[in-house]
Write a protein that binds this DNA or RNA. Structure first.
Lengths: 249, 249
DNA sequence: ATGCCATACTTGGTCCAACAAATAAGGGCC
DNA sequence: GGCCCTTATTTGTTGGACCAAGTATGGCAT
């Protein structure tokens, strides 16, 4: 067996150590997924009707519906009334939503998430400085500029997140980016809190600009210092009754 | 509104911009979750029977069952015949499973995941060196020792992962740890591939031991060098037809 | 022939009734 | 008292029914 063949081995296989005792619903979920694979269906393609699926797989319609609810929870299908179930691209969104469940926000998780961001965003400095093109850094400027033109707290928080997302994107690592995006709801909420108490858009913009300049001058030390300070800034206000507000990330 | 109050604001609220057209199933999912919160139910507590839930929330049993399937997919409840639905601690597992089949493994993702690990595991060196107690580092030795006593490929891969998991745990960041654990299926598969071609348990053990020693001597540079080399080692074999195997992480 | 509209059909949403299977609980037997 | 068996309850699964809302069809007017 070659490396490649082994790498392509299914990950799902090892997650099924119990071959017996599989419910009809679980069986249907797998059968539908298999059908999607076999027929090479893509996003937007429609599945057979619930009644057809029931007949094809020898199951009642209610059982089919329970399976479809599972697939819907997974973000694999989206079912529109009177139209049918169509393959969906909401999978990542479903993962994000599910992940956010367990991360209910609190002062503790505020600090925790900021600590995570510091590790990640500081850790990618080297790679960005070595590999980012001038066009990449100009793009950061563009994204950063959007923070100034939006006035609402929600809009500003979204733009703020997009800047940091663009930064992480420059690390060129899909896994890291996917993990970072998982935290989007939590991070955005943190940013909203910081921006709600008083307008800090201009401050945020300027700090971001300094960070970009450090990257443009390929100054590792300055980047690490600036990003760490930027992300640590709000921590001093958390866990207190102060309403001075935290400067968001 | 104080900082704390804002931080505790629900994250779920902003994810519902569509107030109209909510199905009975979705409504039930929320109602059950709300019931769990209000009654302060904890892991292991049982929910009312399907019929009772249907009567309480004015819904048919099939509708209740569809909602329970969703909650089951989320890993929030586990339902056993006759005993009913009980609150489950499989939520993280559900997230992991869901996250995994978006990350189908390939040589590209192999490199990508290793790159992610390098960023993370190198980035936490400073914190570990500054904050880890001698007991923490002794614990790493213990975990590392388990690699030698297990012979099977699967067992060895699991132990290998547990060492790196313990390392990440020492970073003292819950968010980071949760994200790292999300990749467990992928990482373990990578390790299995590395260990399947030839036995490298002893090599892995020794490299790990060197890493621990670097931490014990609080040597940042040595740690960063060792962990980077350790995680990059396998990359040179990936994407080729070579069967020499990759030394796993 | 073409475009519009009303009707019938299709399809998901919800609920009910029924039966099978599994299991916890209680009674009976030793 | 402890073990086994019966029983009752609950989930698992199916089929059917009805509703509401889209979709398709066919007729009608121009």
């Amino acid at each position: 067996m070659t490396m490649d063949a082994m790498l392509f081995a299914s990950l799902a296989a090892d997650a099924a150590p119990e071959p017996a005792k599989v419910s009809a619903v679980d069986r249907l979920v797998e059968q539908v997924r298999e059908m999607v694979r076999e027929r090479g269906l893509v996003i937007g393609d429609a599945l057979p009707t619930e009644r057809d699926l029931g007949e094809q797989f020898q199951a009642g319609r209610n059982t089919v519906r329970e399976a479809l609810q599972v697939l819907k929870a997974y973000g694999i299908v989206e079912v529109r009334p009177k139209v049918g179930a169509v393959l969906s691209d909401r999978h990542e969104e479903a993962v994000r939503k599910l992940f956010a469940f367990q991360n209910d926000i609190s002062p503790a998780s505020f600090m925790d998430v900021q600590g995570y961001r510091r590790i990640v965003e500081a850790g990618i400095g080297d790679h960005i400085i070595l590999h980012a093109t001038p066009a990449d850094l100009d793009h950061l400027d563009e994204v950063n500029a959007r923070i100034l033109v939006n006035q609402g707290v929600d809009e500003a928080a979204r733009c703020d997140f997009e800047f940091h997302e663009a930064l992480v994107t420059l690390a060129g690592n899909r896994t890291l980016l996917a993990n970072y995006r998982l935290l989007q709801p939590v991070i955005t909420q943190i940013m909203r809190v910081g921006k709600a108490t008083r307008p800090v858009q201009i401050d945020t913009f300027e700090v971001h600009a300094q960070i970009i300049n450090a990257l443009k001058s390929r100054d590792r030390v300055a980047y690490t210092y600036l990003i760490s300070r930027h992300l640590e800034y709000g921590l001093q206000f958390v866990g207190t009754e102060s309403d001075r507000g935290a400067r968001s990330g």
